[in-house]
Each structure stands twice: as structure tokens, then as C-alpha cells.
Design a protein around this nucleic acid. Structure first.
Length: 206
DNA sequence: AGCCAGGCTACCG
DNA sequence: CGGTAGCATGGC
């Protein structure tokens, strides 16, 4: 077990050397390596939340195009999202796929965001929102609210399996692994998850 | 020309 | 309950 902890901690350094700082979460298409200050305001926070929805089972490349469309129409704020029709909204986010579902999800999230204005959401509250599951909730808590929450995704499962020879697919179990092993530091969790994605992308091709 | 991407919901047995 | 079809575009 001690050995396992050490392996996981070493993996962070290893990936950092290999991939360098990732600069997550991107704001307006730009990454800021080694800068963990975003979101700097409410608009950036809402942009991250929108991105977290749009990227569900979808490559970030496709999401960027949708976000660009939303900027151009001044839609990176909850009130604007709520005032546009479902048809127009889904049209703007078409490149992200599942656009009918996601248009609805964006509205549900916008409503939640307005209702809890200036409040930090709890994980259990986020999970009750239609369209937000564990990974999206955790991404929002980590990247939009800087909470020390470790995000688990398909890449994480893959990386843990190939580097640590652990083959669980259970979200909670995987998450617990990281909590038991790493200090609760949101910058560390931010970088580590981004590095796992960088590594996971390579892993899938080989 | 398939297969997959920074998942989630609804429904099935 | 656990398992899975459906959602849908763009890139490789």
C-alpha cells in the first residue's frame, strides 16, 4: 500500500516532466500554464460551467467552436442563456454534439446558477441538477470554484489501470484512491487531472 | 469508413 | 438494483 501511494505520487512528477504544465481550465480558448487564478470573475466561472457541460463525451475541439458562437452572441451569462430559444441555442452549440440535450442542460444549469447567485454550490446540490453527473459536478467544483475535488474520467481509469495495474471502474473508489494518497490541494488536483488527460490521449493511440 | 471524444439520463430486465 | 441504448458532431 505504501508502495502504491508512492507510485501515484511519482506519477504526478513523471507526467509533469513529460507533458509540462497544462494551464487548465482554458478561458476564451487560451491556456495559462502554472497560473491557477482563474476564474477571475463571474463570467469566467460561468464559461467554465458551460464548457463542462458541452464537453461531455465530446472532444474539446468541438466545444471551442460552440463557445466561440456563444461569445459572439453575448451568451456567456445565465440570463442570456435563459432568454434565448432552445432552437437558437442548440443551433449555436451544434458542433458539440447532442445539441438538443445540451441546450436543455445549459438552461437547467443557468437556472441553478441564478438561483444560487454568489453561493458556492455543494456537490450534492450539483448532482441533483438535470444534466450534471459526478464528473461534471466535480469538474465544476474543481475548476470553477477551486475546491480540492479530484475529477475522475475515462482517461483516469485508463491511466490507473496501465500504470498502477488497478482495474476498477468505480468512480467513488477511484476518487478515494487519490484522496487517500494526495494532500487536499486544488492546484495539485487541477494539474494532475489535466496531466492524466494529456497522458490518456497518448495512451489511447498506442 | 468506422471509431471515438475531457458523460448523463432513461429505461430495461 | 446493474447494465445499456440513445443522444450527434467533427476529426482522424
Amino acid at each position: 500500500m505504501q508502495n502504491f501511494n508512492k507510485k501515484l505520487q511519482n506519477l504526478y512528477q513523471e507526467f509533469l516532466t513529460k507533458h509540462d504544465y497544462q494551464g487548465w481550465w482554458p478561458i476564451k480558448g487560451r491556456y495559462f500554464p502554472k497560473d491557477y487564478s482563474s476564474p477571475k470573475n463571474s463570467e469566467e466561472r460561468f464559461e467554465i460551467i458551460i464548457g463542462a457541460i458541452l464537453t461531455q463525451n465530446t472532444s474539446w475541439k468541438n466545444v471551442e467552436k460552440s463557445l466561440q458562437n456563444l461569445y459572439e452572441n453575448n451568451l456567456i451569462n445565465p440570463k442570456a442563456i435563459l432568454s434565448i430559444s432552445n432552437e437558437s441555442l442548440s443551433d449555436l452549440i451544434k458542433s458539440s454534439g447532442y445539441y438538443n440535450q445540451k441546450a436543455k442542460k445549459l438552461k437547467t444549469v443557468a437556472e441553478f446558477y441564478l438561483k444560487n447567485k454568489n453561493k458556492i454550490p455543494l456537490r450534492e446540490q450539483l448532482l441533483k441538477v438535470w444534466g450534471i453527473g459526478k464528473e461534471t459536478a466535480d469538474s465544476i467544483l474543481l475548476y470553477a470554484y477551486k475546491h480540492p475535488i479530484f475529477v475522475i474520467d475515462a482517461y483516469t481509469e485508463n491511466v490507473v489501470r496501465s500504470y498502477l495495474n488497478l482495474k476498477t471502474q468505480d468512480y467513488d473508489e477511484l476518487q478515494e484512491l487519490f484522496y487517500k494518497t494526495l494532500p487536499k490541494d486544488y492546484k495539485l488536483y487541477n494539474e494532475f487531472h489535466a496531466l492524466i488527460v494529456a497522458e490518456g490521449k497518448i495512451l489511447n493511440k498506442t
